[in-house]
Design a protein around this nucleic acid. Structure first.
Lengths: 192, 192, 192, 192
DNA sequence: CATGAATGAGGCTTCATTCAT
DNA sequence: TATGAATGAAGCCTCATTCAT
């Protein structure tokens, strides 16, 4: 997907906001149109329908996440710094784009099989990006050889989501105040 | 919630199946009624409405999960065995009640604020149950004193979900074939 | 209609209360059953269905009204006393059976054509009863010979309803405090 | 309420027809849409829901009645002419807008308390308009000083409704053939 | 006789999508 | 290209009625 023009981007940003606020089914095309300051019909000039808009929004979010992740991580660092970077990046990304990420993370079930599949594929892509960092660290020798890098990425990713979701929704903490070190510590050193 | 009679249980089991298949919004009361082999009106004899049925189903799932978890874990074992037990239990529970757990794990966004809150509260309860196991292990000295047991529980829980979700939806593996040891290994020993 | 037994009467009295409170469509069979302290199914032992129960209730009310009217009016009195008697009786009947009369008066439109016709027929019967009093008074010479007794009855009846409805619903007056003399005065003496 | 455009008016006119035919509860939104030759959804573009449409229709009828009443009565006439004018107007209005008036007059019970209150308030407004005519006649000396003008208005109004309802539904007379003089005669001169 | 659990037809309402302007 | 008025399919829920006990 290439963003054709500013209006398409406006609609995507509006979609991110609205879908994030309400989830897929509770979001109305009218609300997205209002948020984007365009007419309802205009949405259909740029996107085939609601589910298409949702998918495009997911891709848009994904790209943004991965782009920013790539720019935010300094590969030369050691594994501990990399994990902390990823964790902090995840936190910062949540802080800046909370709505996007939450939408992306949570909208897996209450949508059609088709969209659900695409969502999983996107999530996979994201995990693969993290996996590649682990892989490099493994090759450089800073982590054990017998670690499956994908399992490791999933551990990190799943934990971060669980952790931040909890902090946000249950403990109502501010992002800047959340210290991801306990998680990184467990992943690095184990609990034993 | 106490289950008054068999029909109420039938409806709950049907609700679990249908909500799990389609998520909250895509599930139709008619479909749940069909699945339970009762008339549509009968649902309303037992539950005030769709959202009420969903909530009751969540509680029903939670209770089942926690009950079975408590029965499935032998507390006298060492921490490694406990983690493997929890992991295997999670896997077995997914195998037996895949639909329930997935519904419970994923329906967080596309629902009303009210239901979402309850869902988070239930998830919290579940994590607390796992936390208590970690706590005991910590007290018995089998894990480091500086570990936050809740962070540890979240790490385990988030990872297991991520891991199994991936195995099921992406890699299409059978539950009995999934070995959770790599995850337990990371959590126990770290990746370094 | 002859009232078979006490239970049938209980149901009719309950129907009067409930239909009066809520009108035809907002009254539920369950509520009538509760009010009569019988099971919902029992209603159908005595009445074919809701509309049948409504009709029977109307007849029951009508009979009660006419019976009480006949007993309450002393025919030997002069026309002024008769009109005041009818007015006061209407007032007292409203006081004692407000619910019945209001139901009877107002449920003309929001019901099926069939029931509506019966309601009109009942209303006609009621007006005819009043008409007969006017007729006697006309024959006894206490009112003008050129008065159409039915128009007179309708004037009285229509006015009383308008008057009492207004007092009850708009001015919230108590029945015993309502003096119908102004109406009787107008009908007797005119406004000129 | 200001009528925004022709379509809103079409819907209101359709609502008048349908509600009049069937009453509130037996009228279906689909039937109103069909009568107005619009889609069912269009009703909801103009009115929040069924009860809102009903209320707006009542106001629409009221305004129409009062407007036409004000234009149809020549205030300079004596009281007899005024009463005959009001009676004939009521008859003509019934002839032209039978459905509206009947709906307005009869839908008092089978509706929610909220709507019922509004209906009473509207009826009150209508009676007040008639009252004002009586008041003027009283001030001009053409009727007795001891007449309560509101009681008089209610007498006229209640009687006309009773009278015309009877003629239409029981005697099936045509409007143009109904002579309201007998009523006016009673009100003017009394029955004595 | 009496009951009330079970039923399903029917209606209000929502909202994604279309299309004339 | 941009719009938003119009649409109608679809779903939740109510409640009169039935019937097994």
């Amino acid at each position: 997907m290439t963003i054709k023009n500013q209006k398409e981007k406006d609609i995507l940003e509006a979609a991110v906001k609205v879908f994030s606020r309400n989830g897929y089914h509770s979001s109305k095309m009218q609300e997205i149109a209002d948020q984007a300051s365009v007419g309802k019909g205009t949405l259909y000039e740029y996107f085939k329908g609601k589910s298409h808009l949702f998918e495009e929004m997911m891709v848009y979010c994904m790209d943004k996440y991965i782009d920013e992740l790539k720019n935010g991580i300094n590969k030369s660092k050691n594994i501990e710094d990399i994990l902390m970077d990823i964790a902090r990046f995840h936190g910062k990304f949540l802080k800046d784009h909370l709505d996007m990420v939450q939408t992306f993370m949570n909208n897996t079930t209450n949508i059609s099989d088709d969209i659900r599949c695409k969502a999983f594929a996107h999530r996979e892509l994201l995990i693969n990006t993290i996996t590649s960092y682990i892989e490099e660290a493994k090759e450089s020798g800073s982590i054990r050889k017998d670690i499956d890098e994908k399992v490791c990425a999933m551990t990190l990713f799943g934990t971060l989501n669980q952790f931040y979701t909890n902090k946000i929704y249950i403990e109502k903490e501010e992002f800047q105040d959340i210290d991801p070190y306990p998680i990184v510590d467990i992943i690095l050193n184990g609990i034993k």
